[in-house]
Computed example of a mutant assay.
Amino acid sequence: MKTVLLSSIVIACTLLGARAFFYGEEEGNGVGTQKGQQEVPLVSQNFATKVINELNDRLNGSLVASYVYLSMAYWFDRADMALPGFHKYFLAASHKARNEAEAIMKYINRRGGYIRLKNLKSPITVWRDGLKAMEYALGMEKDLNKNMLKTHTVASNDPHVTHFLEDRFLETKVDVIKELGEYVTRLKSFTKDYSLGEYILDKDLHD
């Protein structure tokens, strides 16, 4: 009986070791090895580590933005908020931010880099009104744009990366910042009847 049990244990350990070998898992915890944290020599060419790290920061920033926008969208979808236009706008913004993160991940893989995803902190879940949400979104987009410009500077010796950032992000970010700035201005202009201004903007966002 002991012999059979011992043999079973040996076989199990052997299989676990084989799984770790074939699937890239560390024995004992099922977590992937550091292989995914390394460049792909077969593809990578003149892709500086500092640039890869910058791109990873940008994709994680976009994921955070997507998370925040999702929080906003479903706050305004509440029955006691009932602002479907704000819900629609922020939900679309969440999807757009997530698509931006995916675009960066796809680009990193094309160049033979590595992807490092970070833990996401819980975003604010109470947004009081549309103005506060728009102001927060405006500040967040300004920060995202500032960081994207920083990455563009770091990658100045890699024209492929700078072209990717210019073509996919920089122009779009400027437009988004202007749009959010206009929404904030419109809401602030209703100093005597904010609720009316919010209602009008909500209808515009929904149409």
Rank of each mutant, 00 (worst) to 15 (best):
L70T: 07
V154G: 03
A103Q: 07
L63R: 11
M105N: 03
P84H: 03
E182N: 12
D193C: 07
A82I: 08
S71F: 12
A48T: 10
A133C: 11
E179H: 08
S94P: 01
I108L: 11
M1L: 09
R58S: 04
S44H: 05
S66L: 00
A133Y: 10
K173I: 03
D80T: 03
A93S: 15
G113S: 09
S71R: 13
D158R: 00
P84W: 01
K203F: 06
A92N: 11
E141S: 04
P84N: 02
D158H: 00
S66I: 00
K121D: 12
T185I: 06
V31Q: 15
R58I: 01
K173M: 05
A101K: 10
Q34R: 12
M134R: 02
Y23S: 11
L83E: 00
G139E: 11
G139W: 05
L138E: 04
A12K: 13
K173P: 00
R186A: 06
I11N: 08
A103D: 14
D129P: 07
Y107C: 01
E182Q: 09
V64M: 09
V31P: 12
L149V: 14
N145Q: 08
V10A: 15
G32E: 12
V68D: 01
A73M: 04
V43M: 03
L59S: 01
F164Q: 09
A12W: 14
K106G: 02
T191N: 12
H206M: 07
T49I: 07
L6P: 14
K178A: 09
A18P: 06
A12N: 15
L196K: 14
G61N: 05
L205C: 09
G130C: 04
S44A: 13
N147E: 08
M81K: 15
E26K: 14
T191Y: 10
D167C: 10
D202N: 15
N109M: 04
A79W: 15
G61A: 01
K178Y: 14
K188V: 02
T14F: 11
D193L: 08
G36L: 03
G85A: 02
E54I: 01
L117I: 09
V126R: 15
H87Y: 15
R78L: 13
K96L: 00
Y69M: 05
L117E: 14
E39S: 08
V126C: 14
T153S: 14
L91V: 11
I108Y: 10
V161Q: 10
D77K: 15
E54V: 01
M72W: 06
F164D: 05
L83M: 09
M1H: 15
S156V: 12
G85D: 07
L117S: 08
K188H: 06
P123T: 02
K188W: 08
K106Q: 13
K106A: 02
L201Q: 12
V4A: 12
S122R: 13
K178S: 11
Q38V: 07
V40Q: 04
Y89E: 02
A101M: 10
I52L: 05
D158M: 01
I124P: 06
L63A: 00
D202L: 03
K96Y: 03
L16P: 08
Y183D: 01
M1F: 11
H87C: 10
I52C: 03
T49C: 03
L196E: 10
L196F: 14
L149H: 15
G17I: 01
R116Y: 09
L187R: 13
L59C: 04
R128K: 14
I104W: 06
R111M: 03
N46A: 04
A155K: 10
T191S: 12
D129A: 07
V174K: 14
R128Q: 15
L70N: 10
